[in-house]
Computed example of a mutant assay.
Amino acid sequence: MSAEVWSTPTPAQWLAGARPRTLPAAVSPVLTGTGVAAYLGGFDAATALLALVVSLALQVGVNYANDYSDGIRGTDHARVGPLRLVGSGLAKPASVKAAAFVAFGVAAVAGLAIVVLTGHWWLLAVGVACVLAAWFYTGGTRPYGYLGLGEVFVFVFFGLVAVCGTTYVQLGRVPLPAVVASVGIGALACAILVANNLRDIVGDRVAGKRTLATRLGDPATRRLYVGLAGVAALCVGGVAVLTTPWALLGLAGFALLAPAIRGVVTGAVGPALIAVLKATGSAELAVAAALALGLVIGA
């Protein structure tokens, strides 16, 4: 794309490029991990807030990084879904790349503050791993997001690491309820990505982007989505068994997931899956908030 076709994005377009519909995947693990810490008497407002900043900044960073990397590869030129700044020609690739690294920088500063407050210096290595994983999802010469490993990244970093890490920086340990909760939240975060890749399956195949959805095919990807929802529900039940029956409040959030599951099962495609993506994000946030509330009440 020639330099003269680039325009200057408006603030609203920069916001759209950050893909706010994916932000529940960043907020949910922090709410959940904080709920577990509160149940066990370890709630700390300062570290919880800093953990939220880290998670949100990483999510925004990876969204801009994906926009940049997919845009320069041409993957986004025929994409259905949220605005892509580079693929649509609205922003120079270098500007979007810079925005990604600004977000990563914010995450690094907040993470360093957590390290200073807690004294757990080994967490610096975890922070570096998070940033590298975020960048190489679609960046570099062999991005693992193009090898069908995107769901692994989401499950590990926006499930296991985010939930257990949030609990750890407040409580000083990772109890079993945090691990079980992290599997459930990770499953719902994966469901967001599965819905996204299901929507883009045709365009990704044309562009040579080998996501898990393109590898599994349409029917199996739909079954995977439903299976992830089932795993998440089981994990909410597991947390309730390990802590308090009040944790079952988390199941209320699945009411928001019902329309999304219906859409996936009945064969929604293209733009119809944007509603599925939005509903999945909302459901993850609702499950996390209700679960955390139940844990606080149970405490």
Rank of each mutant, 00 (worst) to 15 (best):
K209G: 12
S88D: 13
T221K: 08
V161H: 15
G35R: 02
G74F: 14
V115C: 10
V115M: 06
L149I: 04
V60H: 09
A38F: 15
Y144A: 06
T214N: 03
G267S: 07
L249W: 15
A279S: 15
V194E: 05
Y146I: 01
L249N: 07
N63H: 12
C235N: 08
T166I: 05
A292M: 09
Y64P: 04
G61F: 07
R21V: 08
H120C: 01
G184A: 01
R222I: 03
S55G: 06
N197P: 12
F104L: 03
C235S: 14
A99N: 05
A189Y: 06
G139I: 02
A178K: 04
A286W: 15
Y225K: 00
A110I: 01
G140V: 03
R19P: 02
L228Q: 10
L295T: 04
L117H: 09
G184F: 10
D70H: 07
L56R: 04
A213V: 00
T32K: 05
G238V: 00
A290S: 10
A65Q: 02
L85S: 12
S7W: 13
W122E: 10
V62G: 06
L85E: 13
G61K: 01
A3W: 11
A275F: 15
L171F: 15
Y64A: 08
P177T: 03
G127R: 07
K92I: 00
L216H: 14
A78Q: 12
A229S: 12
R222N: 06
G89D: 03
V156D: 11
I192T: 03
L85I: 05
P259C: 11
R222A: 09
N196D: 14
L273S: 13
G165Q: 03
T221M: 09
Q59W: 08
V156S: 13
V179N: 02
A125F: 15
G17E: 12
G127I: 02
C235H: 12
V152M: 06
L291P: 04
A258W: 14
L31S: 10
G159L: 01
P271F: 10
V5W: 09
A292F: 09
R199Y: 10
G148W: 13
